[in-house]
Design a binder for these strands. Structure first.
Lengths: 106, 106
DNA sequence: CAAAAAGGCAACAAGATTGTTGCATTTTAT
DNA sequence: ATAAAATGCAACAATCTTGTTGCCTTTTTG
């Protein structure tokens, strides 16, 4: 499953905080995010890279700093994966219900 | 972030397969899932427990076997978390666009 | 009742993850 | 031209994670 990488990247409180910040505020760099998280720069950098590998974030070097932005399309794909799973589940329940109603009570 | 536990649980190909199977087919036990995954029973049990801890699965002992079922409400919550994040992002883009349009070009 | 089926718990080794420190490079500001 | 700012890369130690094996208990079946 390709999606597992995305979910795995989201599966950490710190990384979830990063994603949340990026969704609501603009102009973040590796340094500003490090300060926000209370980690060393390299510590935060690690976490950011996990999100970049999962294509949830994008890095854009601008001069001496690196701009960090969100790639919402990846999140959308993840959301849709869950949605289709829920749909499958609903269909199965529906089929089961129909089956029960069609079966005469003994 | 409470959701990180759910995402983390989904962040593994094997576990994702378990969830997918449970959404489409019924009557699964720990043993049948083990066979499906090609792991030892204890190996599969570990993975199942991760999903149970994240409240994505429920276990229900029936006689000597243990029925495994999906708890879709947890998946729904996770999906909604993503949705609200996307909404926040959209709002920010919208605000930015308005700002740009209102600023006279120099 | 004895054997098979389904499971539980704990210990282990191999890998993966995390956050830190140390040091080098590039860009910007004084 | 320096100094400060923003990063990068690599090595480490401390933790998790994973799948296996070994052994014990409970429930069903013949």
């Amino acid at each position: 499953m390709t999606e597992s990488r995305v979910f795995k990247a989201l599966g950490d409180p710190l990384r979830l905080r990063i994603v949340q910040r990026l969704s609501s505020e603009s102009h973040h760099t590796i340094s500003t995010l490090s300060e926000d998280l209370g980690l060393t720069r390299q510590g935060a950098r690690r976490q950011i890279q996990v999100l970049v590998d999962a294509q949830i974030l994008r890095l854009q070097p601008v001069g001496r700093e690196t701009r960090v932005t969100l790639d919402v399309s990846t999140l959308e794909t993840a959301r849709e994966w869950i949605t289709s799973l829920e749909r499958q589940w609903d269909q199965r329940l529906m089929a089961l219900k129909t089956l029960v109603e069609a079966t005469p009570t003994n």
